[in-house]
Design a protein around this nucleic acid. Sequence first.
DNA 1: TCGATAATGATAATCATTATCACTAACAAG
DNA 2: CTTGTTAGTGATAATGATTATCATTATCGA
Lengths: 131, 131
Amino acid sequence: MPRYSRQREAIRKQVSNRKDHPTAETLYAELKPKNPELSLATVYRNLNQLVEWGEVARIDACGAARFDWIVEPHSHFFCRECGCVVDMPEADDKLPRDIAERFDGVIESSASNFFGLCRECMEKLERESRS
Amino acid sequence: MPRYSRQREAIRKQVSNRKDHPTAETLYAELKPKNPELSLATVYRNLNQLVEWGEVARIDACGAARFDWIVEPHSHFFCRECGCVVDMPEADDKLPRDIAERFDGVIESSASNFFGLCRECMEKLERESRS
DNA sequence: TCGATAATGATAATCATTATCACTAACAAG
DNA sequence: CTTGTTAGTGATAATGATTATCATTATCGA
């Protein structure tokens, strides 16, 4: 029996309008100007709620949690230089299936994380090393 | 130019003597009795150092970081009930190879994380639900 | 033996997140 | 429409993991 709330609606909308994977803090900063009364705790609270309801997905890795309105499980790439997070849809599902069968327990979810440099940072570092 | 230190040696030894994946706090608790002067900060400091030198690996997921003297990258299973961490060597290397080729940047490492219930917890919960 | 400085221990600080709690607002029932 | 129940909020204290600070100690080459 959840009730309507202006704040939750704004948070839901903000997450679904973004193609990248914002943190709670980022969402808060973006929403604050047009919702001056908004509290950071409310952002965290509602994100947890939305995750629980399966409306958004939480991406855990590299410090702060990030949120994604694409709830189908998929892998991510994390750039160690700029901290950006990129979807890696190619890497999915092939792996977990047969692993899960062999495993001596219950596998409820899985996530493959990739770490390194995104193209922008790779090119930037290459440029810098030529000097 | 790192120098010898009794504390680092004790930490190194403690990590390599364990087959599970202890947290910094756990290692501290285990070492403290025989090294009463040891500080938690020293444990963190040295673990970071050892990771940087490639002597131990850091496993990031589910709250506190865990440490592993097996540095070859491999996947892990995390039990949501008891919090145990189990090696999943079967899940490795199949995935990253062809992904890395297609990726528009540099993939330096990858890790597949599995979440769910370990056998013990699965059985315990089954038993509890029959009552 | 000495001196430069790596390493330590104690603890304050930080960062992300959760808990608390008095207050506000949604909304079903009267 | 007025209400009563209680979900939701905002402000902030508390937490947990980790890092920074800093005065002191210890390593080790000169």
